[in-house]
Amino acid sequence: MIVAERKPVDEILKMIGGAKRVLILGCRGCVSVCSAGGEREVEILASMLKVGRKKEGKPIEIIEASLVRQCDKEYIDSIDQWDGQFDAILSMACGVGVNFIANLRPMVNVYPAVNTSFFGGSAEQGVWSEQCAGCGDCVLHVTGGLCPVARCAKSLMNGPCGGSQDGRCEIHRDVPCIWQSVYEKLNGLGRQEQMLELAPIRDWRSAGHGGPRTAVRDDLTV
């Protein structure tokens, strides 16, 4: 899922400026699962903003809502039911949702209430960790299913580096060296000789270094 975290409330209050009526719009997709921007978080943020603005002596009217997703036009269209009832939208979706609202409703002020952090999974309750970088050229078949792009601090394709000590990354003792994990995984599977295969120099255009990426499925475009 896409993992996000709520922005500090003073940053949010600053970005909405003097807006008197705000639509806080949650998303029931990824940000709901990672407890950053679902219905519950909309309720909490609404309360925070009301308290924050009361403290400033500038009360605020808030509409609380959430969409099934904010990354599809048909769901964004439902925003129109609140036309004329808000000065700004605070989207609690990932950056995709904010972009979609901005793309599809040019005259609407839309602001992000969360920082979109990474693609990850729930390591344990309340803890999420990055697992994928969305680089567009998956190499998991040669690394035992463990991603060196997202999980190696240097995104090395031929690791480990000299900073790997006792299975830990040199950036922090809490960070496992993913190349050590790759070795252990491949070794356990009897595929350790794969570690000797040199990965070629990589073309990073698929990772976004060639500009915004698009995926087209011709069979679905009608």
Binding site: R40, E43, I44, S47, V51
Partner: peptide
């Protein structure tokens, strides 16, 4: 819920 506690202050 966190929101219930915040609502009390609100």
């Amino acid at each position: 819920k966190v929101s219930s506690l915040l609502k009390a202050f609100e």
